[in-house]
Design a protein around this nucleic acid. Sequence first.
DNA 1: TTTTAAATGCGACTAAGTTGCAATTAAGTC
DNA 2: GACTTAATTGCAACTTAGTCGCATTTAAAA
Lengths: 120, 120
Amino acid sequence: MKTKQAIEEKKFKLTSARKELLAILNKAEKPISYEDIKNRLSMDKATFYRNISKFEEENIVKSFESNDKKRYYEVQISSHAHFICNTCNKIECLSNISPIELKGYNITDMIFKGVCKNCS
Amino acid sequence: MKTKQAIEEKKFKLTSARKELLAILNKAEKPISYEDIKNRLSMDKATFYRNISKFEEENIVKSFESNDKKRYYEVQISSHAHFICNTCNKIECLSNISPIELKGYNITDMIFKGVCKNCS
DNA sequence: TTTTAAATGCGACTAAGTTGCAATTAAGTC
DNA sequence: GACTTAATTGCAACTTAGTCGCATTTAAAA
């Protein structure tokens, strides 16, 4: 696991805030924003954002911006595409989509938008 | 053209601010943010955002959020995918990508992310 | 030309995310 | 286990994209 590896390489200290955040991220089944979990967090907003950036630098976490001006984070274990509903802004992970080849481009992420089952 | 149609249906008045904004949007070769064009605009920020929302309601314009917290707008003429560079945040239009089929989903937009030619 | 609802500019506001700084803490060393 | 120190934290103040209320202006129908 990248987390253990990063700690062993002394990239950062494993503080209680970081343990808490990693636990939440590992349990999450879809990308989460600060807003989504702030009530469950004992750390400050600034600490959340600083740690999540740190995790991104170490390739433990990936993120993207959704339609609602918020940034969503998820653990980088399996690479998969995302679906964002234009109506309710719900985010779903799409596991069955094969990566697209496009010469000259090195594509790492795919986001699809449309209207979800509930909203259509 | 949707613009003329919308005006004829009395959906809105064709003010000079709107003419200016439509001219810029029609000339643009890629999605633009307010920041991108503010120096060329004679209208106020609030007017820009109110008009661009109006255009979106009337399906004249489409938009999405990029990696840089900004919203990008473009005229809705040809439906096409977009590529966003994770390094320099540049946005490119991809015209050769065929729409993806995914049962249960009605996909209207596709965004690909990665590293562009310049940055890799 | 008059009328009037729609549109505009301005300034104040909101909300997500960032930053500076003094206080705290993880983790290596004795 | 106590000591040391750089990394981390909380707090408050800040930044920035976008929104809103309101008094003034304007397109376009009469």
